[in-house]
């Protein structure tokens, strides 16, 4: 069967009920999509991250403010605010702290709420500041290696190992303690 709107094969056969008596409409895929989606304009599109951000940043900000904000970077992973708003993805957990002010309104816009009330890990983060620090140290070590500054890289590596050991040890004793207590 041929599409009613063009000469492609009709693969969609839609029953129209609007007139009271069922009526068949035969369309190709493209025309069926067009047919089924009209009347869709009223549907408010789900807010996209970039859209919400752009709108929010446009309020009460001068171009200079924006340019300054865009250049701000996370000390741990090095992501700039511009990169975040361009890609819509954060670089590390610390970004939630370092861009907290900008984020507050964004979260309210997306979720209608700004506070978590759901599940929490049973074993709370042993030492989150130290763990976040690891993200920075690993990045610095990589940069030191690329710059062929091997002395600095080796110092950083020792520092990373020490923190990893401390965090691991603390994690182990914390969890052993909890299990023993049960």
């Amino acid at each position: 069967m041929q599409c009613q709107e063009c000469d492609k094969t009709a693969t969609f056969h839609i029953t129209e009920l609007a007139g009271g008596k069922p009526q068949e409409v035969h369309l190709c895929e493209d025309h069926a999509r067009e047919y089924l989606s009209h009347g869709q304009e009223e549907q408010p599109a789900a807010p996209t991250l970039a859209g919400v951000l752009a709108h929010q940043l446009a309020i009460g900000q001068t171009a200079e403010d924006l340019a300054r904000l865009d250049k701000r970077t996370c000390p741990m992973c090095g992501i700039s605010f511009y990169e975040f708003r361009d890609k819509g993805r954060f670089g590390c957990p610390h970004d939630y702290v370092c861009f907290a002010d900008e984020l507050e309104a964004l979260l309210a816009n997306i979720h209608g709420e700004t506070k978590h009330v759901g599940k929490c890990p049973q074993h709370s983060a042993t030492d989150s500041a130290k763990q976040t620090e690891l993200i920075r140290l690993r990045r610095e070590m990589k940069n030191a290696i690329s710059a062929e500054n091997y002395e600095r890289a080796s110092t950083l590596r020792d520092e990373i190992r020490q923190i990893e050991a401390e965090v691991g040890e603390k994690q182990k004793t914390d969890r052993a303690g909890e299990e023993g207590g049960e």
Binding site: F90, L107, I110, E113, K115, G118, A125, R175
Partner: peptide, 27 residues
Amino acid sequence: DRLESKVTYAFDTRLGYLTACPTNVGT
């Protein structure tokens, strides 16, 4: 729960589980 007994998740008491995209944060 089982996995969480072995690894430490990125979690914030106010914002919940921290995710790469803020549209997934919280739960």
